[in-house]
Design a protein around this nucleic acid. Structure first.
Length: 917
RNA sequence: GGGCGAUUAGCUCAGGGGUAGAGCGCCACGUUGACAUCGUGGAGGUCGGUGGUUCGAAACCACCAUCGCCCACCA
């Protein structure tokens, strides 16, 4: 083995072997376990969030697979309608052409080409992350099977009356020319204005003042509303105003919606361009004036001077005209919530169009119940509240999009405008007995991407066919995802799963945090702070990193700032940490629910951890080349490490079942480094490197070394698949294990039969002995290489017995030259002291130790213990404590106080001795 | 306007009614035959504030402050 761990060389080789051997497919007869990957957007590349999420899912899958489950981690990708269409349109634009130039069929072909290219990249990245997904089951939301499922669901919902078509106000994106669902619209505060306009009363007796943030919509006004109880205006209700510029007479109406406190208490009503006004218009039967075109310009409904103007240009002109008419009351600065499309960032307009909707309430009810009754559990629990809040107020879902890339809506129209829904044109003709001469035209629109994603938990398993996979793996066990798509995706999967499978799609929803940069900023291209997970694995030089962060920026002026920040943070680029270090870092950071600052210090530390493990394995292999097959005898250290390992296994099981990968990682790390490496390997050296130990004893230690390492590798495997496999291939045969791959081995289980109480107590004694001596050595600046004589004063029989039995360990590991028993009454020489139970360990100071330094050291210890003692005595002196606290707490406190007193007495005695010198 | 979360060592974060923890960083010593990507020792915190519950609060409760996120139709 190399002297240090070199991840890059081994990772890809190992993954290829796993994949070629089909190890990722479900196997065995165990209970099925299934996780569905949240399908990444096919146009994207994996970012840190994916890598984090994939690490969690892979760790869970590997863990369950090793526990004997038929484990399936279902892979696949999402066609991501709008996002993908935008990417390909941009490509076309760069070529000097456009989607409209080449036409729908050619365009869709281009998107498929792009999908092949881009999707392959993501699959490659997943492989580099070590993802043990079953590639043989790979799915794409637009492939034939999933498209069938989409059509099936659409037709069934339509036939049940749960999908309908209607003309309503929708969120319209004037740049993308499509409707959006409420979720795809993000409202943000932006500085704006509040314009106050005077609308003259038709009676000629003055005017009303209305305020608006969107002046151009006045062209579509059909009323002015006031609150019914507003005395200022009640005499005007029923009268009319003359709409300026347009000249239309519109009524003054009364409606509860109006807030008397806000502005003047008069609201202009534009039913065709505002969601609230739409409702009011419906209540009062007002006419609707649609004044916009698809791209957000004014249409022919408005006075000629305004036709064809973009709405924002028209806005300026309207204000100017009001001013010239002396009808502009005032302009106030005002912060406005601006709704923007989440993809295009264009200002979205409420716009009257025909769209398809899912009637959601009947689907939502059982979905709410599934969480209320605990059939689905959110982890952490508080996310269920977010879920409920949305589900209780859920609105019908607009599912049609005016795009070209996506599942075409399975609806056909005849010349008379009748609509027929079916699986295909033939199906429709047959079902409705339409003759061949009847002209049918399919709906031009496609479905919201999330419509197909909602079916993912069963469409990927073959639904609507009754497949074996579907029977085995539905419902899945856990969904691992971010909080940002609880509404978009999680809720909709639950609704569709219950509707079409009659069961929940998964029993647990593990919501993880968001990966942020080291300053807590969200990672994004425009901030220039993105990290590519592969760059952390493979390393990257500064120039490449700079290029990655600055090319393709939407806003060129950000470039210098990004360059500067990147140069400062990564003056030498990023070193290669390897996949296992990255995965372990993600796991260690995966605390409940909170966002994660990705700190390079952590991954650096876990890379070192890999190296530590590597070298521990080197040591073990070096010492187990020839174990021999005679009897073996286990030493106290051997028993102790086996017991410590069991304890670690126990806690790792617990942490996996609670989705606390951070705690699992911590338990693994601490055992490996602080117990196995720091102590056990050191304690094994005296046995293996001394002639005193019997062959049986040596065999016992060699077996323990190899057995513990082999089991430890299995324990670590779900988090660090590559390094554990690489080492295991060499270790397993010596441990008597003939398996092909560590990933197919059983996960370690606790050996309940082990009774090691005595051995554990002995080893604790040895460790404390050595720690005491090390402390003296460290604080007295005695060279680690110098062996020290030690005197034991106040020792018990057991102390003396142990000092003999473990003399070898004390000498070799503790660098103790000799251990001498000193009778209680015997006068010790000047010495430095360490306390071990009731016994004092003395290191004679002759020529070694600075007396003043030793006195200071003891005083410091005494201060600390005295403070502890005072605290304990304070408690014990409090009657309330003694009377009310549980007896065992009081007893414990008494014992503590007694211990402190004894320690202080010993320290005093030692200080006294020093002063006599 | 409603809801959720955070506030613990210089930094990043665990923990949790009875003894305040880890990693990184820092200081000192050190090449001992797995590992200097290392070893050994050490310094460093009134656990955001105020009040309450309790024998006991950093932890539970209330309020407040600061920061963050989500939802919502005051034009």
């Amino acid at each position: 083995m190399d002297k240090s761990y070199q991840p890059l060389e081994i990772e890809q080789r190992i993954y290829a072997r796993w994949e070629q051997n089909g190890y990722f497919a479900p196997r065995g007869e165990g209970e099925p376990y299934c996780i569905m990957i949240p399908p990444p957007n096919v146009t994207g590349t994996l970012h840190m969030g994916h890598a984090f999420q994939d690490t969690i899912m892979d760790a869970l899958t590997r863990y369950k697979r090793m526990k004997g489950h038929r484990a399936l981690w279902q892979p696949g990708m999402d066609h991501a309608g709008i996002a993908t269409q935008m990417v390909v349109e941009r490509l076309l634009n760069a070529e000097g052409t456009s989607r409209r130039d080449i036409g729908r069929d050619k365009f869709v072909e281009r998107v498929w080409d792009w999908k092949e290219h881009s999707g392959g990249q993501i699959a490659e990245q997943l492989r580099r992350m070590g993802a043990s997904v079953d590639w043989s089951r790979d799915r794409f939301t637009m492939d034939d099977g999933l498209s069938n499922a989409v059509a099936e669901v659409f037709v069934r919902l339509y036939e049940e009356g749960l999908i309908y078509r209607g003309k309503r106000l929708v969120n319209w994106d004037p740049v993308l020319h499509t409707a959006l669902s409420d979720l795809e619209v993000l409202s943000q505060d932006e500085p704006g204005k509040l314009w106050h306009f005077r609308y003259p009363l038709a009676s000629g007796d003055g005017h009303m003042v209305v305020a608006t943030t969107r002046p151009e919509t006045m062209l579509g006004d059909s009323a002015v509303a006031v609150h019914p109880d507003d005395d200022r205006y009640s005499h005007l209700v029923g009268q009319e105003v003359i709409l300026p510029i347009v000249g239309r007479r519109i009524p003054i109406i009364a409606d509860d919606y109006v807030e008397t406190e806000f502005g003047t208490g008069c609201v202009k009503i534009t039913p065709a361009h505002d969601f609230n006004d739409y409702e009011i218009g419906a209540r009062h039967d007002l006419p609707m004036y649609n004044i916009l075109t698809d791209d957000g310009s004014l249409n022919d409904e408005v006075p000629e001077a305004y036709r064809g103007l973009d709405r924002f240009v028209a806005r300026e002109k309207i204000v100017a005209e009001f001013e010239s008419l002396d009808l502009l009351d005032k302009i106030e600065d005002y912060t406005v919530k601006i709704p923007r499309g989440d993809r295009s960032h264009a200002v979205v307009e409420p716009y009257l169009t025909d769209q398809w909707y899912v009637k959601i309430e009947p689907l939502a009810r059982p979905a709410i119940e599934a969480v209320e009754t605990g059939r689905i559990r959110f982890v952490p629990e508080n996310w269920s509240k977010t879920y409920f809040d949305w589900m209780y107020n859920i609105q019908d879902w607009c599912i049609s999009r005016q795009l070209w890339w996506g599942h075409r809506i399975p609806a056909w129209y005849d010349d008379a405008g009748n609509v027929y829904v079916g699986y295909s044109e033939e199906d429709v003709r047959e079902k409705h007995a339409l003759g061949a001469d009847a002209e049918l035209r399919q709906d031009e629109d496609v479905l919201d991407t999330w419509f197909s994603s909602a079916l993912w938990p069963f469409s990927t398993l073959g639904w609507p066919d009754d497949t074996r996979a579907l029977r085995e793996f539905y419902p899945g066990n856990v969904l691992v995802t971010g909080f940002d798509i609880i509404f978009f995706w999680v809720a909709r999967m639950i609704m569709m799963g219950l509707k079409f499978m009659g069961d929940v799609p998964f029993h647990e929803v593990y919501i993880h945090g968001l990966i942020r940069d080291q300053d807590g900023q969200k990672m994004s291209k425009s901030k220039g702070n993105i990290l590519d997970p592969l760059d952390l694995i493979d390393g990257v030089d500064l120039d490449t990193l700079l290029a990655k962060r600055t090319t393709g920026l939407m806003q060129d002026h950000l470039k210098p700032g990004i360059e500067k920040a990147t140069r400062e943070q990564f003056p030498n680029g990023i070193e290669a940490y390897g996949c296992d270090a990255l995965r372990f870092t993600f796991a260690a950071l995966a605390t409940t629910g909170r966002d994660i600052r990705f700190d390079l210090g952590r991954i650096e530390g876990y890379k070192n951890f890999c190296n530590k493990l590597w070298n521990a394995a080197r040591y073990v292999l070096m010492n187990t080349e020839d174990i021999g097959d005679g009897d073996s005898e286990l030493s106290a250290a051997d028993l102790w490490i086996r017991a410590r390992f069991d304890e670690t296994v126990r806690s790792v099981h617990r942490h996996f079942s609670n989705y606390r990968l951070d705690l699992a990682a911590k338990a693994m790390y601490e055992f490996t480094w602080y117990e196995f490496c720091d102590w056990y390997l050191e304690l094994s050296k005296p046995v293996l490197q001394s002639d005193d130990a019997s062959d049986a004893m040596q065999r016992g230690t060699r077996r323990t070394l190899i057995d513990t390492l082999e089991a430890l590798l299995r324990l670590l495997h779900p988090l660090m698949p590559f390094i554990t496999e690489e080492i295991w291939q060499q270790v397993a045969p010596r441990a008597g294990n003939a398996g092909d791959s560590i990933m197919l081995q059983p996960f370690p289980e606790v050996d309940e039969s082990l009774d090691v109480a005595d051995a554990a107590a002995d080893i604790d004694w040895v460790r404390n002995f050595i720690l005491g001596i090390r402390q003296i050595r460290g604080e007295m600046d005695i060279s680690p290489g110098k062996a020290l004589p030690v005197l034991m004063q106040g020792s018990t029989d057991l102390d003396r017995e142990r000092s003999t039995r473990y003399a070898n360990l004390l000498e070799r590991v503790g660098r103790v030259e000799s251990v001498t028993v000193l009778a209680d009454e015997e006068e010790p020489p000047a010495a430095a002291t360490a306390l071990l139970g009731d016994m004092r360990l003395l290191v004679p100071m002759k020529g070694i130790i600075d007396i003043d330094a030793e006195r200071a050291r003891l005083e410091k210890q005494k201060d600390k213990v005295t403070a502890d003692l005072q605290k304990a005595q304070g408690k014990l002196g409090n009657k309330n404590f003694v009377n009310n606290a549980p007896a065992e707490v009081v007893t414990k406190e008494r014992a503590r106080a007694a211990e402190f007193e004894k320690t202080i007495a010993q320290l005093d005695e030692q200080l006294e001795k020093l002063s006599q010198i």
